Simulated assay, not measured.
Amino acid sequence: MRNISDIIEDYLKATIRNSGDDPLEIKRSEIAKKFQCVPSQINYVIQTRFTLEKGYQVESKRGGGGYIRIVKVSPHDHLDLFDQMIKIVGKNIDQHTAENIIIRLFEEKAITKREANLMISVLDRTLYNANISHRDEVRANILNAMLETLKYKELT
Rank of each mutant, 00 (worst) to 15 (best):
D10A: 06
Y44Q: 09
Q95K: 14
S5Y: 10
Y44H: 13
L155E: 15
V71F: 04
L155C: 15
F35W: 04
N141W: 08
L143T: 07
I4S: 03
F50Q: 00
K33W: 05
V138A: 06
P75Q: 01
V89W: 00
G90Q: 04
R62S: 13
I102F: 02
D6Q: 14
V138T: 08
I101V: 03
A98L: 03
I42L: 03
E99G: 11
E25P: 14
N92P: 12
I103G: 03
I103C: 07
R69P: 06
E154R: 09
L52N: 08
I46V: 13
D77T: 06
L24C: 00
I102G: 02
A130G: 07
G64C: 08
L118W: 09
L123S: 02
R69Q: 06
D10P: 05
S19T: 07
N129V: 13
I88S: 05
I101M: 01
T126R: 12
H78W: 04
K54Q: 11
K54W: 01
K72I: 07
K91F: 10
D77W: 04
E137H: 10
I111D: 01
E59C: 13
H134Q: 15
I26M: 01
K151Y: 08
H78D: 12
L147P: 12
K113W: 10
E53K: 08
H96G: 14
G55P: 10
D6E: 15
G20D: 06
D21S: 14
E148G: 10
D94M: 11
L150Q: 04
K13P: 12
M119S: 08
N43L: 04
C37E: 04
L52R: 13
Y11N: 00
N144T: 13
S74V: 13
I101T: 01
V71Y: 01
T51H: 07
P75I: 02
Y44S: 10
S29W: 08
E137A: 09
K153Q: 10
K34S: 07
Y56I: 03
V138F: 05
F82I: 09
S5F: 10
N141D: 14
S19P: 12
M146Y: 14
N92T: 14
A14Q: 07
D77P: 12
V45F: 00
A140E: 08
K54T: 05
H134L: 15
P39T: 01
F82H: 04
L147H: 08
A32V: 13
R28E: 10
A140N: 09
T51N: 06
L127W: 01
